[in-house]
Design a protein around this nucleic acid. Structure first.
Lengths: 192, 192
DNA sequence: TTTGTTATCGGACAACATGTCCGGTAAATA
DNA sequence: TATTTACCGGACATGTTGTCCGATAACAAA
């Protein structure tokens, strides 16, 4: 079993496909891209694509691994005992890789349902917030961000509940939701 | 302009397509469904499908409108001055329409990227939470729900930031994130 | 019941997408 | 230089999409 040097062409081809996918997601949205689009953009033969990946999703997942890898490393480890995520590192990394993040998280192609539902809820919250402007620390947390937070928290909690086959009653979930978000809202709106 | 009675066939056809879509999403996931699958299940001609909807997405969006409509009505209006969403109503409605909700929000087909990223973050938070079990009100808010909340909040905040072209600095976003979630976490972990 | 309308059907069509297989070529390693 | 192998391009069968058409049967109105 002699040591094998890796063929330099492989990495290059995968890199080309990677870049093509990202740029195409930005232009057309993930689900409007065909394998043909990707290989045209990358100047790679279509059969070569299938030598590397099973399908379009496979390429995306492989890209996501790089994405998560970069995100994990380089960040100062969270202070021991601190439960909160080091969001600063996330935001800085997103700023440094704006296009990548925007392609993966932004836009509207990928998450049609959740985005539609959340916008609906968020608008509703925003309406209520408008009625109580002036007081509170709105300077620190803008109302639209607060609305976004409240609606997305509810939807993610709901999604968790469904994925786990509704292990608690709606009343219990309501209680949990309150415990999670109310202290934050109070401290912002009532100036603590 | 005489009053026209609606043709009863129309509503029936749309209802059949609606039911077929929902059941198929549950079985295969949204993006693995073809129009052919839908019309086969619904016993509707394929050309008839295109008489009603432009494409698969169009049918889904139309279903979402019903979804949001049901969600909006019937809920006791939020107490005036209360900013929080009436999550109880949402959870009850989800319980009454479990299959619909599960089809639209559950599973993994529709939100590959966000779900993958969130699971990553959530696991990380959960690890940290394990180190401080015992104290706090874990009985009210289970650790995995708390981890889910913290990670999804960060991702939704990040998504908002990207969609609005990064109007604040990463440091400012970090501050906002802390303001939003920290009070809730503290009250849960430290027993207030 | 009769009449006029129209929703539905099924088939046909072109264009495109998918995944696989193959032999030839060129670039890599040894 | 010799040998391995990554890449290419073409071909193939299969499936998907969106559109158009004429025929049929269900409908509303009279």
């Amino acid at each position: 079993m002699t040591a094998q040097k890796p063929d330099r062409r492989v990495q290059r081809t995968r890199q080309l496909l990677h870049e093509a996918l990202i740029s195409l997601i930005l232009e057309k949205g993930y689900d409007r891209i065909s394998v043909q689009d990707i290989v045209d953009r990358a100047n790679v033969g279509r059969s070569t694509f299938y030598d590397h990946y099973q399908d379009k999703d496979d390429l995306l997942v492989s890209d996501l691994e790089v994405f998560h890898g970069q995100l994990g490393q380089g960040g100062t480890e969270a202070p021991a005992g601190d439960v909160l995520l080091s969001s600063l590192h996330v935001f800085q990394h997103a700023q440094d890789n704006y296009h990548l993040y925007k392609a993966l998280l932004g836009g509207d192609g990928i998450n049609l349902i959740l985005r539609t539902s959340q916008k609906q809820l968020s608008d509703e919250v925003l309406n209520r917030l408008d009625e109580r402007t002036g007081n509170g620390r709105v300077d620190i947390v803008p109302p639209d961000i607060l609305a976004n937070h409240l609606s997305s928290s509810l939807l993610s909690l709901l999604t968790w509940w469904l994925d786990h086959e509704m292990p608690y009653s709606p009343e219990k979930m309501e209680e949990i939701y309150q415990y999670l978000v109310k202290p934050g809202v109070d401290s912002i709106l009532n100036g603590k």
